[in-house]
């Protein structure tokens, strides 16, 4: 009886020590979870999730306050990546239609622009150049397509232009789309 108790107690102590040691020895200095989430978001800062940018949404997800399906620009892929990271179940996107919109960038019709600078103030990534009373222009490479500059424009001279593929950015389609379907048709 005594031996049994001693053995169990000894084992418990031993495993406790091993666990304690490993907790110190193999400690993972991970990014805070919000940073990891933020890294997965597309950084359009568009606010379609209902938060004032990607970072606040990431923090809300980290604390479990927000669902993972509220980022239309990220689409299905981002939702699945978030589900994997956070160990949650994938859910359908809240706004499917918005997610299917092609990637676009803003374009200012320069003849119509009155130089009011309202769009410059709205742009979350400083991708619009210009000054008061001078026409503005969008730096295409830096535009995230968030559309936040559209509503402030008093003369509605900003349009969204879909970004078409170039031979350099073109992607080979998934083979099954063309081959297997035909074979199984």
């Amino acid at each position: 009886m005594i031996t049994a108790i001693l053995t169990i107690a000894g084992l418990a102590t031993l495993f406790g020590l091993i666990l304690g040691y490993s907790a110190i020895r193999f400690r993972v200095e991970g990014d805070p979870i919000a940073d990891q989430i933020d890294a997965l978001l597309p950084q359009t800062q568009c606010g379609q999730c209902g938060f004032a940018g990607c970072r606040p949404y990431a923090e809300a997800m980290a604390t479990g306050e927000a669902e993972i399906n509220r980022c239309p620009p990220g689409g299905e892929a981002t939702m699945i990546a978030l589900a994997e990271l956070l160990g949650r179940d994938p859910v359908a996107l809240e706004d499917e239609a918005a997610a299917e919109k092609p990637k676009s960038v803003a374009y200012i019709v320069e003849d119509e622009c009155i130089g009011c600078t309202l769009c410059i103030q709205a742009c979350p990534v400083d991708a619009i150049m210009g000054a008061a009373k001078q026409m503005h222009t969008v730096i295409t490479d830096e535009c995230t397509g968030c559309e936040l500059c559209l509503p402030p424009c008093p003369v509605e001279c900003i349009h969204m232009q879909p970004l078409g593929a170039t031979p350099q950015t073109w992607k080979w389609p998934y083979p099954a789309d063309t081959v297997t379907e035909a074979g199984h048709g």
């Binding site: 950084q43 359009t44 990534v125 950015t169």
Partner: peptide
């Protein structure tokens, strides 16, 4: 394409944070 997207979103994050 994913790498381009990542670069683009990194750029956007930096610019947004700078802003």
């Amino acid at each position: 394409a994913q790498e381009r997207e990542r670069e683009k979103s990194d750029l956007a994050r930096r610019r947004h944070e700078a802003r």
